[in-house]
Nucleic acid binder design. Structure first.
Lengths: 108, 108
DNA sequence: ATTATATACAACCAAATGGTTTCATGTCAA
DNA sequence: TTGACATGAAACCATTTGGTTGTATATAAT
């Protein structure tokens, strides 16, 4: 009845860089498996597996329309991450060290 | 010269539940490998490996005093996570769904 | 000097992970 | 209805992961 059997949690789901990219791709727009796969150098099957893992973590939602299955981001489970993170904020006594660290990363 | 060769990033580092627990343990206090290992059902060697991975991700700092090596939390790299998360906040259009999701988890 | 403690290092192992290719099936278009 | 397209599913593979045990070495404590 509930969603997927949840063999993967949010922390595992976002551990993989490809999956993190997929999430960004699906943020806002709805894409079919093939459309997602086009953006990556790996096979459609591999992308499909990543989508399954993201689905198990509740991070994406899918809808079958005709022969394709279209996915969108479902950001809610990220709250668990946010919650986890919030615990550590108290140990960032001086937020400066964090800001400095942030400034050091040019990358997104 | 920089810290460790960083074969592991923050996302991978926090993917494992044992490592997440270790981080909480080290938040605030400084513990030696053996002291950390005592809190887990796994071997000291296994814990030591987890500490190495956390170190590679820059999430802990160690200091050798006599025959022991004492670790503490170094939360700064968590900013990368926070940064990553912040991107998705815009897709949480109504924060209610997030709060609802948070409310559903009794667990910490 | 001897023993106990704290850690490191190496070898090994089973299971999980991230990928592939191949084949089957359902759906759309000519 | 025949072919093209989108996906699913299975089998397989190499590497990584999370763990183990055993051995070595440095530091304390007796």
């Amino acid at each position: 009845m509930s969603t997927s059997p949840k063999r993967h949690d949010v922390f595992q789901a976002i551990a993989d860089p490809t999956r993190r990219e997929i999430l960004k791709l699906l943020a806002g727009r709805e894409l079919a498996v093939t459309e997602v796969a086009e953006k990556f150098p790996i096979s459609r099957t591999a992308v499909s597996k990543h989508l399954l893992i993201l689905d198990e973590a509740g991070l994406v939602e899918s809808r079958k329309t005709g022969r394709e299955k279209r996915f969108t981001l479902k950001p809610e489970p990220l709250s668990e991450l946010e919650q986890w993170l919030s615990y550590f904020e108290q140990f960032w006594q001086n937020k400066m060290s964090m800001l400095k660290h942030l400034a050091e990363k040019k990358e997104n």
